[in-house]
Computed example of a mutant assay.
Amino acid sequence: MRALKIAAAGMTAQQMRVEVISNNLANMSTTGYNARRAEFADLHYQQVARPGTINSSSGAVLPTGIQLGLGVRATAVSMMLQQGSLAATGGDLDVAIEGRGYLEVTMPDGTAAYTRDGALKLTGDGQVVTADGYPVVPDITVPGDTRSISINSEGEVYAYFLGNVQPALLGQLTLANFTNPKGLEAIGSNLFLETGASGPSAVGVPGEDGLGVLRQGYLEDSSVDPVKEVTDLIEAQRGYELNSKVITASDQMLGSMVQIR
């Protein structure tokens, strides 16, 4: 019976949906995390009687026909591009992106990666890096005798020194934007890689060309809505249970057919 395979496809789809929801809930406190959503499409249809064909007995055209669906399949796990709320931290090197854009970092192999996690740190040499130690692009080095750091909304980084009233400009943070940010490849650690689906990166100054601005002393919270995720989890669980009941019913029907003498 086709119902067994159809219900199995439905259970697989709901299981994937639960996995996506569980990942969202696990990252509800991850800085700059965007919630994901599983998307599905129906499978091919068996055309028992195509719509619009002529009924051989009467010559009438079939208005609907008979099309039997064969189940469901996963099409994508899409990233929901929603701005997370900004949480005040007071850290000199904590920067939140308010609007579009990603900070660019350099991976150990020289590859460019992108992140919205603005919890920046300093190395022993004063280089500005991410929490995992990846240098921020462009390179910015903070002198050891710096008293405090100021980062304005355009990304300009200033250092204040003892005995000097005027700050010294150390460099400027830039942001990268993409035509299709949902096409970025997530590699973990709040990092993304450019792909053919995302398009090439367009680097610019924060606040210009549609890019967001930087907020020093803030970090972007996760955009996960726990209430919505739990509601979706209940819905996915019920969908899984209903598909399992279809398998049980199909098995009982097959058992009845075997027992017919």
Results as ranks from 00 to 15, higher is better:
D42M: 11
Q216C: 07
R100N: 12
M80Y: 08
V142W: 03
T53L: 04
L25I: 14
Y134W: 15
K245L: 06
S223K: 00
A7R: 02
L170M: 13
D109P: 04
G255I: 02
R261T: 15
V227C: 05
T179K: 06
G65C: 05
S85F: 10
P167A: 14
S56L: 12
L62N: 09
N34M: 15
D125E: 13
G204Y: 10
V213L: 03
Y158Q: 11
P135Q: 14
E98C: 03
A168G: 03
E104T: 15
A13G: 09
P108C: 15
P181I: 03
R37E: 15
G110H: 07
V128D: 05
D139T: 15
L214G: 05
A60W: 01
Q46G: 10
A8H: 04
V136L: 10
G126P: 02
N23M: 09
A35P: 00
D42S: 13
V157S: 02
K121L: 07
F178C: 01
A35C: 04
Y134V: 05
F178D: 01
G155F: 04
V137F: 09
P226T: 14
I149G: 05
L170T: 10
I140S: 12
L173G: 11
G101V: 01
A96Q: 00
G196M: 06
M1G: 14
R2D: 13
A249I: 07
Q83A: 14
G118R: 02
G239L: 05
A96M: 05
G171L: 05
S189Y: 03
P108M: 15
D232L: 10
T195N: 03
Q166C: 13
G110V: 10
A49L: 14
N177M: 05
A7E: 02
S222G: 05
S244A: 15
F178V: 03
L170N: 12
S198Q: 03
G59V: 06
V129W: 06
G183Y: 07
I149R: 02
V227G: 04
S57A: 14
M16R: 11
A74D: 00
R261S: 15
V205C: 00
V128A: 02
A249Y: 06
I247R: 00
L120T: 06
T141P: 00
G126F: 13
D251K: 03
A38L: 12
A112M: 09
V61L: 09
R73L: 06
V20I: 09
G101N: 01
P206F: 01
I66Y: 02
A9F: 07
I140R: 09
N34P: 01
L68Q: 12
I54C: 07
A26P: 07
G65R: 05
E241T: 08
K182T: 10
I66G: 06
T123P: 00
R50T: 10
P206H: 01
F161G: 03
G32Q: 10
S201R: 04
Q172Y: 13
Q83R: 04
V72S: 04
V18N: 07
M79V: 15
G155Q: 03
D139L: 14
N190E: 12
V77E: 13
Q46Y: 14
V258G: 03
T141M: 12
R215K: 10
L173C: 08
A131Q: 10
L191M: 06
E98D: 13
A96G: 00
N24A: 10
V20E: 07
A113D: 09
L184M: 04
G217K: 01
G118F: 11
M11F: 08
R36I: 01
E194K: 08
A76E: 13
D42W: 08
Q83V: 05
T115R: 02
L169R: 14
